[in-house]
Amino acid sequence: MSAEAVAPELTPQAYKTDEHPIWCPGCGDFGVLSSLYQSLAGLQIPPKDLVVVSGIGCSGRTPGFVRSYGFHVLHGRVLPVALGVKLANPKLTVIGVGGDGDGFAIGGGHIPHAARRNLDIAYLVMDNSTYGLTKGQYSPTAPKGFQAGSTPYGNIEKPLNPLAMLIAYGATFVARGYSGKPKELTELIKKAIDHKGFAFIDIISPCITFYNTYKVIPPRLAEVPADHDASDRAKAFELSLKEDRMYLGVFYQVQEPTFEDGVAEVKSRAQASSRPRLEEIFAEFS
């Protein structure tokens, strides 16, 4: 008898819970979820070591549909909670998910810091350029002129550029995907999870109910050019600013020390001068 039982292969199905997603039929988030299952199976991530942290929004319901650990937090607070989870147990695979409102509006203040810390997590923003859950108001990625409940005469703000922003903030993996291209999206998510450091994907995921972009998006899509040098930050930035097309793929990827590496280094520096027992710390105050 072999000493070690071989664990059965995890299929995409193995990551599904019994709950059927509550999303509207045709919502882009179904595609994202399906690619997420595929990626997890592709990487054979053990469910017991996976934590999906999500914000509030339609997209925020994702952890309920993934058989693993999850934390459905507050609107905009995915990244702080993910930081805590990862710091408590760096062995866990931590995936943050949320909407464009969640990430770029109310939670926007956390993005620069998560990016520059280079915490080893993947952050997937399901970007539909609207606030799906609150019924379709304009979001930070909605175009000028966007007309909805809170902008009946048209949105007068220009949209922010998530890719340019993340490259500027120091994320070490920055990509764009599309819910309607599941094979490519699966590959991107796998790369993001595999990446050592802060990996961000802006996933275009249309809201069929409040901002149906299924017709306007596909004609604009293009692959990131084959000759694009993703290790060149300036080039990546330049590509992110191009408005002629919506490029899909990895814009930027570099290897840099992660936050966890830094934490380990601080601990070893501290322990070099160590008096690791409480009584010895007491001695300093006597």
């Binding site: 702080p80 909670v81 989870v85 710091l87 810091h113």
Partner: peptide, 17 residues
């Protein structure tokens, strides 16, 4: 952390884990 919201969020994440 970058603010106190994040501070308590980080605490909850760590405690959860």
């Amino acid at each position: 952390t970058e603010d106190e919201i994040s501070a308590l969020g980080t605490v909850l994440g760590a405690s959860y884990a």
